[in-house]
Amino acid sequence: MASYILKRLMSTIPTLFGILTIVFVMIRIAPGDPALAILGDNASQEALDAFRERMGLNDPMIVQYWDFLKDLASGSLGVSMVTGKPVADSVASVLPFTLELAFGAIFFGIIIGVPIGIISAIWRNGWLDYFFRVVSLLGLSFPAFLTAILLILWLSIEWRIFPVISTPTGGGLWDRIYNLILPALSLGIIMVAYIMRSARSAMLDVMGEDYIRTARAKGAPGRRLIWHHALRNALIPIVTVVGLYFGLLIGNAVLTEIIFNRPGLGKLIVLSLNQRDYTTLQGLMIVSALMIVIVNLLTDLCYALVDPRVKLK
């Protein structure tokens, strides 16, 4: 197992290297000027020139790239061009919020999506199945920001249960969870739709298998049949969807983070892009890519956990 993990991690190095090279080049050839974006449109030409010189933006791209690699080799993600703070600090300050939002969304996705997926599969083509399929289609069709605004209108403005501004810092654990519920729910609704649909189709496949028929013929009770025999074998597609969706969550979370005024990796990426803060953007992309690699690895490890037939080599 350990050697498998090590091999997988090693194999990601070329991928990460490719990603950071593409990001490095792309943000520099994208139109825009970091000096103007950071100092403001009223900054004098002298100040803009001085800023570019100080930040090394006048150096040839290859020189900038070499400096970037040297920093990276020494374990540094560089220093933000806007705040002057180490990029690693910026990442560390928002990463926990992104993770808690992603896990919160996945939590809602699983606790709602899996049961309704199973119900839909059991009562296939019944009115409940149709109802859940329509609801899941709505979940998929609604953009995250619209879901967020609708939830705010309903639960914050009308019912006054949750705050509009999600304040994840300060307060105790309960306060933090309380502030997480609405953003996680708004993001999790899409997740519910994905998980429900994959749980339903996986359960339908499994329920048609011979061993289920055999178990039923041998008199296995319905509940045991579903939860023990069928669901366990239907988990792999669900785990795959969760793993894949985790990566997408970082991107999808941007609008949720903006609407609820939450800190997060996605929001910081957009902010850095707007400000043309090259160094922060590079660091964030490396961290995001690394996160996706790790989640994919964890997904593979989960396969072995849920299905003993899967061997990790």
Binding site: V164, I165, I258
Partner: peptide, 15 residues
């Protein structure tokens, strides 16, 4: 607070 979304500002002001 830095809130670029006008709708979010309006809603939080309302509450």
């Amino acid at each position: 607070r830095y809130m670029s979304a006008a709708s979010a500002r309006d809603l939080a002001f309302q509450t």
